[in-house]
């Protein structure tokens, strides 16, 4: 069944994933222009962009566990998912700089080095930036597969920092960001517990 599904998936062009990735932005713009965001749109815009970035990052991280557990391969779409996530992260940071902080550069700079939730968020953003600019075939060729893979393991600390950024920005322990952290930890744990596709024998070279 997985094989058949993979055959269908192969027919989906990558641009279709980009198109789907634009839907949350389209809905947000719709809400902005139809007054659907209530009396305080800034917070909603900023938070929705940030949450969408995180959800796409989690989708990126789910590709490997999905492959290992079900043999369903979304590998072809992983780069697009990661870049869509980063695009939302850029919009999230841009909304913070412009709408939330009103370009108060001095306060932003002191806040970014002083406030834990901003330290977490900004470090994650810098890590994701490094991954986004190397998410192309040229970078893989230049860095070599092994080096590129090593660099892209930074997605693990990045996603944990994003999750902490959300939790630390709130006044209480809210269930939603905690559940998201749980999902992230689960996805990371699956990588360790299931190191290769289920049912696939350990490769000979690794057996002692």
């Amino acid at each position: 069944m997985a094989q058949q599904l993979n055959q269908y998936l192969r027919r989906i062009p990558v641009w279709a994933v980009w198109l789907a990735g634009a839907i949350p932005l389209g809905l947000l713009l719709w809400d902005i222009f139809t007054g659907g965001l209530g009396v305080e749109p800034v917070r909603d815009i900023e938070h929705r962009l940030g949450r969408t970035a995180l959800y796409f990052l989690i989708a990126t991280l789910a590709v490997t566990p999905l492959l290992r557990i079900t043999r369903i391969s979304l590998m072809r779409f992983r780069r697009a998912l990661g870049l869509i996530s980063f695009s939302y992260a850029v919009l999230h940071v841009a909304s913070w700089i412009s709408m939330e902080m009103g370009f108060l550069w001095a306060q932003m700079l002191t806040d970014v080095v002083k406030r834990p939730y901003l330290i977490f968020g900004m470090s994650a953003f810098v890590l994701l930036l490094a991954l986004a600019v190397t998410s192309n075939d040229l970078s893989i060729r230049r860095m070599g597969g092994a080096g590129w893979r090593r660099l892209h393991k930074l997605v693990y600390p990045a996603v944990l920092l994003v999750s902490m950024h959300w939790i630390w920005a709130l006044k209480l322990w809210e269930p939603k960001p905690l559940a998201i952290l749980g999902a992230i930890l689960l996805l990371l744990a699956v990588r360790i517990v299931i190191p290769r596709p289920l049912g696939l024998k350990k490769p000979r070279a690794l057996q002692n």
Partner: peptide, 10 residues
């Protein structure tokens, strides 16, 4: 966890 130097008017 955050600055109190400025505020945003709803």
């Amino acid at each position: 966890r955050w600055s109190q130097a400025s505020e945003r008017r709803i």
